[in-house]
């Protein structure tokens, strides 16, 4: 990485509308940086010129060189303004930053991926990795929760993964109309039905913090211990390199110690109110 504080220019190659408030940007570097290497779980600081900078996980395939993909949900000043970006527009990129999903450590074990809402975006590179290296892992379960059927992110991909014989995919929504024939209920309810052995599984979890807390309990009920559970945390960020202290989470910095943490290493601060 060059100067980690200086954004590199990237051109938007494609904008895909995923959901009413969510879009995916495919970016290509235009400066000296022709390649972009990252590991599943890492994030970039995306600088929307003249508006501001936000941390966004990389949601594309680490195996695809020369392009970097981000899926963004419009929730506030910067992300809402980013929703108006078009093909050919420029953004600044700093990164990749942060810790990664434990793809090597999970080899030889069952992998259970539990995610909700936009949380599927930071986990998609991990899913691509597992599917591209399918023989290295045991049983694979992908469990996803969304608000309603029309809020299901990457629906076509979920359907394609679910059609494979070597992955079990279950989705659930919080409420649905009667035309929906899938599951309705919280994502934790899918765990007893996920095809994996809790005593030999590594769990990757990403979603709203409350959802992650309840997911950890439900994983424990299935026999998965906290040292085999990995969660991705979100905190407001500025520098992304451990200088400013904006992202402090207890004694740790989410930008450099995280965003992916092994749960037993943060569980003492995970439930502390106000952190």
């Amino acid at each position: 990485m060059a100067d980690p504080m200086t954004p590199e220019p990237f051109r938007i190659e494609r904008v895909s509308r995923e959901l009413a408030d969510t879009f995916t940007l495919d970016l290509v570097p235009v400066g000296d940086k022709r390649d972009f290497d990252f590991q599943p779980g890492q994030f970039n600081m995306l600088y929307h010129f003249g508006v501001g900078e936000v941390p966004i996980s990389i949601s594309g395939d680490a195996g695809t060189k020369g392009r970097v993909t981000h899926t963004v949900r419009a929730v506030g000043t910067v992300t809402e303004s980013m929703a108006d970006l078009k093909k050919g527009d420029m953004v600044g990129v700093r990164g990749p930053f942060g810790s990664t999903w434990p793809m090597e450590l999970a080899e030889g074990h069952d992998v259970v991926i539990v995610t909700g809402g936009i949380g599927l975006a930071p986990l998609r590179p991990a899913i691509y990795h597992v599917l591209a290296n399918r023989g290295k892992y045991g049983r694979v379960a992908i469990l996803y929760g969304a608000r309603t059927p029309s809020d299901i992110l990457y629906r076509e991909e979920l359907e394609a993964w679910s059609a494979r014989l070597d992955v079990s995919v279950e989705a659930t929504v919080d409420t649905a109309g009667t035309d929906w024939t899938g599951n309705v209920g919280v994502v934790t309810k899918l765990l007893p039905r996920g095809n994996f052995d809790g005593r030999d599984a590594v769990a990757l979890v990403c979603g709203p913090e409350v959802m992650m807390r309840f997911t950890v309990h439900a994983l424990n009920d299935q026999g998965v211990t906290n040292d085999c559970i990995f969660v991705s945390m979100e905190r407001n960020m500025k520098c992304a390199v451990g200088f400013c202290g904006h992202c402090q989470f207890g004694s740790r910095f989410v930008c450099k110690d995280g965003p992916v943490f092994r749960f037993d290493q943060i569980e003492d601060i995970f439930r502390v109110k106000g952190i």
Partner: peptide, 15 residues
């Protein structure tokens, strides 16, 4: 417990 979690509308847009 599940119904209470559903009520929280966890995945709703904060805005």
């Amino acid at each position: 417990g599940a119904a209470r979690l559903q009520l929280l509308d966890l995945y709703g847009n904060p805005r």
